[in-house]
Design a protein around this nucleic acid. Structure first.
Lengths: 346, 346
DNA sequence: AGTTAGCACTCAGGGATTATGAGTGCTAAT
DNA sequence: ATTAGCACTCATAATCCCTGAGTGCTAACT
């Protein structure tokens, strides 16, 4: 569909626009890119590219600007051809930064977002691990008051969660300990999902004398992992958006920043599509949320062992340095997975 | 120093400027405020007020703008005279909003910031409770792995904190339980500060066989409360700043938003001065941080029982509706204290 | 002596008008 | 098929002028 030369011209336009943020004219290309054809020819090619939907003009006598379709073409080619190489030196540098500052997982992600945004100059996003599909390593009930029971959940990733249960009747320490031991014995090793479906009934059959308490403990446990309750999202470098001329208009900046400020929306944005290990890129109008229809979002995942547990990404103008953003993200994805592995499994 | 009439003129200028955000001229005042003097006289008074440092002109032939000194004067009078009345109906409405959405303390504060910013149209800030001075209600050690011990701390406010301790030697469940019970027995009811200073030595004397373990548990516990480690800060309504004409300049907006984005800085800002129960107001240049030298910050505290445990505030342009902001803050302060009381102690 | 009317003066901000120049599309020559 | 040349477009910036809201000062008035 696109011949060799058209592709070259298109890449030149995209490259120039990504760098300069200004509509690209035929003359600019003929001078700055050595395509061996004159500006008039480039003009013709650009005219064709416009007809094909890859370029457009802000106004009748201006240079061309790449369309979302053009970026999509560009990005697909980047991914297909450049098997993005990992800069080992840089990777180690980032790892050093991350490990020296972060002791806990949440902190690690927060710092990742901070550093990632600083490196890319875009806005960085990171969501904390989803632990719904994680195996329970330990469950314990502790009495902290006559009518208060603390439920402690330890996930296989070392993630700890606490729930306070208020009981109507006083539960004796003795009984509590028995239930606690029993539950720990029974539930250890299962995921929240599994507990929710099949296991619950097994347990109740065996220990129906404590039916009430056990019922509530399991209910609370499952509830607390429902929805996105358990997920935190971190954004950093929001104000980087001001550095892009397309956001010099305050109302556009406001729209963007308001979007990032709404954490529920962000979580939805990041977690709605299934967690696969690929780099995912949505460009401009491909985004579902109107507020970021002129942004591109690049995300990838991080793992614990071979299990994908979270997401990290950058968001910026469609005129983005995709290559740089992708390779930076890969660095963080790998680093996060490695650090988590060490942090949790020794 | 300021006679009756000067004060009236000054208040008129401030009132008009707060509402309109535009330099105020003598004619505007003579028409819109019934002071019974002509614009010429007002002109003379304004000239005096300028000399006294209460007003200034953006340029030679423009109207007057209040200085920080003028706002300080204004605010002091507001606080002295208007003993701000609580709108009970509004208070209940906010309480309903807060209680129906928030189950946990962090969530409660996050929602407070959200609602407060929506109500005031300024940026709202809230810091989570400081628990360093809080009494320990329960401490428990749980073995989650051969080399991993989980420390669970329950504060008197119901706040739970977990720490994972990695031990070199394997600690038997049996020993762990003994130490756990012992520590709980000994430390219960004391604050972190007290534990840090005197108590530690007492304990070690009694149970020197587990010296190593106990040492580390206490060390980790104390460390985790050091600095501001334990404090979370929530900001909401950051983008409200775009609605004020003085921030139509993108670089000013960027400075402001970047400041709010830096959580460490925010925590420092909110917690550096001692927690007293008053409304605290810093106006423009009174602020220590350069980035908010043209903002005013209004904060107050919230309590648990009779103990002040956190702060909530709003930040906006010096040209702020102080009366509204103060009364809104009071509403939130009272509501938070009441909700926390109920949430934790009943 | 304080107050006010009157007047000259200042200056930011809003059109209107006019270059400027980077760009295009088309046509004719190569 | 490519390119040089040219007429044309239009956003942007610069200039100019005008308007109006404001001031400060002075002289008249109570």
């Amino acid at each position: 569909m696109l011949d060799e030369r058209k592709i070259k011209v298109l890449w030149a336009v995209i490259d120039s626009y990504i760098r300069g943020a200004e509509p690209v004219g035929s003359r600019t290309i003929s001078k700055e890119y050595d395509l061996g054809i004159s500006s008039a020819t480039i003009r013709n090619e650009m005219s064709d590219l416009e007809e094909l939907g890859y370029l457009s003009k802000p106004h009748i006598s201006s240079g061309r600007v790449p369309s979302d379709k053009a970026y999509r073409f560009y990005v697909n080619n980047i991914i297909k051809n450049n098997q993005i190489k990992t800069d080992v030196r840089k990777k180690e540098e980032i790892k050093r930064l991350l490990t020296q500052e972060s002791i806990e997982i949440d902190e690690l992600l927060q710092n990742s977002a901070k550093i990632l945004s600083a490196i890319t100059s875009y806005t960085a996003l990171a969501v904390s691990p989803r632990i719904k599909n994680m195996r329970l390593k330990h469950i314990q009930l502790v009495s902290i008051d006559d009518n208060e029971v603390l439920i402690i959940l330890v996930g296989s990733s070392g993630i700890v969660k606490n729930l306070v249960l208020r009981t109507k009747e006083v539960v004796s320490e003795d009984h509590l300990e028995r239930v606690s031991n029993f539950l720990n014995h029974k539930l250890k090793g299962y995921t929240i999902n599994e507990i929710g479906t099949s296991i619950k009934h097994d347990i109740l059959r065996e220990m129906h004398q404590y039916k009430n308490l056990i019922d509530r403990v399991i209910l609370e446990t499952i509830n607390s992992f429902d929805h996105y309750n358990d997920v935190q999202v971190y954004a950093d470098g929001v104000t980087n958006i001001f550095d892009f001329p397309e956001y010099k208009d305050a109302s556009k900046a406001k729209t963007f920043i308001s979007f990032i400020e709404d954490k529920d929306q962000l979580i939805d944005l990041l977690l709605k599509n299934s967690l696969n290990s690929e780099i995912e890129i949505t460009i401009g109008s491909e985004n579902i949320y109107d507020q970021i229809k002129d942004c591109s979002l690049i995300t990838t995942t991080y793992r614990l062992g071979d299990k994908i547990i979270g997401k990290i990404g950058v968001i910026g103008p469609t005129r983005m340095d995709y290559l740089m953003a992708i390779s930076s993200l890969k660095l963080f994805s790998e680093n996060l997975s490695e650090i988590l592995e060490k942090l949790i499994n020794g």
